[in-house]
């Protein structure tokens, strides 16, 4: 198995967190992982894309070069960036609460999900939108075990912010149910 994942989002939407979650869960599932991010002089915020390669074999090429096969786009301004990194097969899950216009890419299956709205509905805040989309992606691709993702959520978020954990789990499960 080889998943080349592209996670793009705007400042504070949690695309980097999404990448880390996938990595941590994949490691627990005994998979090999490479994560790359565009880096610059120390700065935060703004648009960013994180790339994660997940494989059951040692990873050769560590780059995602317009051959991504699992994408998650969180914001309108990063949708194009995400799309450009995707190949002509696989799935791109995007947040249709914010991304109003789908751009067609031959061979690529695009799945709209009103993730911001859904997150507010189940968790009372749009902050869980990244997990809604992850839930949908996990359910559709089986890239990770559901229990493993929930375990990682408990470990990473649960320690620091127990209140946030419940709404995040709810968001993730809402996404799972949507697939």
């Amino acid at each position: 198995m080889l998943y080349k994942c592209v996670f793009s989002g705007s400042g504070g939407q949690g695309s980097a967190l999404l990448a880390k979650l996938v990595c941590q869960a994949a490691i627990i599932d005994k998979l090999k992982v490479v994560m790359t991010q565009t880096y610059g002089i120390e700065q935060r915020g703004g648009d960013s894309t994180a790339f994660v390669i997940v494989s059951d074999l040692p990873i050769g090429n560590p780059l995602v070069e317009a051959d991504g096969n699992l994408g998650i786009a969180l914001s309108a301004s990063t949708y194009g960036m995400c799309l450009a990194s995707m190949g002509n097969s696989g799935r791109l899950f995007y947040n249709s609460s914010l991304i109003k216009q789908e751009i067609e890419k031959p061979g690529l299956e695009q799945i709209p999900l009103e993730a911001s709205d859904l997150a507010i509905e189940v968790g009372g805040s749009p902050r869980g939108l990244n997990l809604v989309l992850l839930g949908a992606a996990v359910a559709a691709t089986k890239i990770l075990k559901i229990e493993t993702v929930e375990e990682v959520l408990r470990e990473t978020i649960g320690h620091k912010k127990p209140a946030l954990l419940e709404s995040n789990l709810a968001s993730f499960r809402a996404g799972l149910a949507k697939a």
Binding site: I27, V33, T36
Partner: peptide, 9 residues
């Protein structure tokens, strides 16, 4: 620097 900045197992 690309390899250096990469995160992997």
């Amino acid at each position: 620097g690309v390899t250096a900045q990469m995160t992997e197992t």
